[in-house]
Amino acid sequence: MADLAAGRTGTVWRSRGGEGRSTRTLRLRTSAVLLTATVLAVLLVPPLVRLDQQAVDLAAKLEAPGWDHPFGTDDVGRDLLLRCVYGLRVSLLVGVAAALTATVVGTAVGATAGALGGWVDRGVMRVVDALSSVPHLLMGVFIVAMFRPGVWPVVASVALTHWLSTARIVRAEVLSLRARPHIDAAVSGGASRWRVTVRHLLPGVLPQAATAAVLMVPHAMWHESALSFLGLGLPTHTASLGNLIQEARGSLLAGQWWPTLFPGLFIIVPTLAVAGLAGAWRERINPRRRSELML
């Protein structure tokens, strides 16, 4: 009451809101800086730094991090910093390509099921349920084992096992939108099923699909790493993060921690950065959340 009488209530609210905002801003900025640094490193280092990531120097094998090699060297003397950047390049390519493919497939399937409804919806969603019941890493291993090792079989393996969640999200959102009067108004106005889907339903689900796609990029990178770690992903001479960790397993037991730590960090840091950005974006596009933030 004393606060109220003194007119300090507004100050208390503002201070709480400001504190939350500063934490969110810090998270957003940190994520943006880390992701920008990662993307710039991946895009610029290979063409600008004319160093051979495959160059072997047996005299300098398994050197600890130092001035010459900031991340140390691996068991044949290759520079780990350079190998990690090249590995991240491949992993990001796989992640982005797989996430885009999975999102396009998932959105198409989910929107079709939701927009058509009835037995098409029931049939499609039972297929999705059936596919979801198989562990996706297992199915991914099965898919990738059918092809010769390379980037595109890994992309196909990750994409074909990850469109299911997007299809579910999109279908649920389409069902929710389909029940709204503005869709009734479009039907009454002579719009075809195709037009209703493309003009009114899909634009409504795009923010959710885009968020799912962004969050899927690090997830796809993890899968690429897992497949490569199992020896089923990219060819062993290709510097992918999974391959680097897989090759370094033996030296970890011998006490050399750097060949596994740095590739691991290269997986974790972009993952957290993407998650931080996606979280900030979700808060930004959600009007209800936005109005809460303004309190």
């Binding site: 709204r180 009067p181 503005h182 009734d184 108004a185 039907v187 009454s188 106005g189 002579g190």
Partner: peptide, 15 residues
């Protein structure tokens, strides 16, 4: 379908 013009109660939801 287009022989009917429909106006709903809640304009916010029907736009």
């Amino acid at each position: 379908r287009t022989a009917f013009g429909v106006v709903f109660q809640q304009a916010r939801l029907s736009a």
